[in-house]
Design a protein around this nucleic acid. Structure first.
Lengths: 218, 218
DNA sequence: CCTACCGATCGGTAGG
DNA sequence: CCTACCGATCGGTAGG
């Protein structure tokens, strides 16, 4: 699935700030973000990176493998960043605030990566799909762990932990659909406000009998 | 943009429960939902509806026009349903609860429509895009109005109305990404829980000084 | 509603 | 990293 090269040149030549593979990944992520994976063509990617199409295949196995590599790296990086920021935070409320803020702020430098990680899963099949789904589940588990701890300690009052996790992740994952740099709020402000929204929902005073009682048939 | 026929046959023939146009729209929505708009081919749609590709063009102007028709109808129907259910509810908390429940329950019969209304906007350009964006904005305005009223009456404690609206809409709009019929919870239970999540976030006790104070740099 | 067919474009390969 | 090229498939049209 991945391209391994014999790294002969890694002693010298700090010139290219990105390896050729990485540059292609980055340009491809932007292209997939802008056009969608299906609508994006390798011809256009070739132009962006200054190569003919066949030359791209020296750096990838297929279009699908390229997408898979981008998504796996993005999700791994996000999970790592989350673990790092959560390492020295112990109160569940603080942990959730940090988790949401970190997820949101991840979009500062990785908007395209984060967006297609969410959108283009459907274009993957087989092992590629499994690899991305596994990483998605890892991310969800991180949030689920926080919700579980908060519920056990009594800090969170959620009637259903699974739905709470999905709701919080929905708010984070949808950010690329509406956030654009240069808007009314910067990303740090958005991160604070969304963290506050999530924590408020999780910690709101609730009558214990909410569950099971159907309120309104609407 | 729309196909108008001289409705000569509407007096007789109650036989076809769906008009040919509508049947094509419905099959197309399912196909676009399953494969994505770009990856879905008119060949496959033709097979699903029992027609050769050229015959489809007796019922549509283009693939893009077909998608536009599906999205506009779905968003109009959702907005109509929301307005109907909200007509006799006046308390902002109740209105928000009904709005979220109605949005969620709309997925019961229109999962594919709702999903692609959210996902496939990017495949549209020009007037088609504007027409869908206008309807999206109408939907957002419905929720924004409820948030505004609740904030003014003091029922809601949100530090930023715009972000609150986006967060609530995110939770609703992402439902097709994870909800599958036959799961642990039925849609009515999910609707109750998500409405509770949203209302809890909007009404949570908050110190007035939250805004502007940056808590953690994380 | 069909047969027959179009130009364009796609991801990918051969061979160097 | 390139030129040259492949078969497949695409949305869509002509003409009936």
């Amino acid at each position: 699935m991945s391209k391994k090269m014999t790294d002969q040149q890694d002693a010298a030549a700090p010139q290219p700030p990105l390896s050729r593979e990485r540059e292609i990944e980055q340009r491809a992520a932007e292209l997939f973000y802008r056009r969608g994976y299906d609508a994006a063509s390798l011809r256009e990617l070739g132009k962006l990176v200054g190569m003919e199409v066949p030359s791209l295949y020296n750096h990838m196995d297929s279009k699908q493998e390229l997408l898979t590599r981008i998504l796996c790296r993005a999700l791994d990086d996000l999970a790592d960043t989350l673990r790092t920021h959560l390492a020295d935070v112990f109160d569940p409320v603080d942990r959730m605030r940090v988790a949401v803020r970190t997820y949101v702020l991840f979009h500062e430098e990785r908007l395209a990566d984060a967006s297609i990680s969410d959108t283009e899963l459907r274009s993957l099949t087989g092992e590629s799909r499994s690899a991305v789904l596994k990483r998605r589940a890892t991310l969800a588990d991180l949030f689920a762990g926080i919700v579980r701890d908060g519920a056990r300690s009594g800090a969170f009052t959620v009637p259903d932990e699974g739905i709470a996790v999905l709701a919080v992740l929905s708010v984070c994952a949808r950010l690329p659909m509406w956030y654009r740099p240069g808007g009314r709020l910067n990303l740090d402000q958005v991160a604070d406000l969304l963290a506050d929204f999530a924590v408020s929902a999780l910690t709101a005073p609730r009558t214990a009998a909410l569950n099971g009682t159907r309120k309104k048939r609407s």
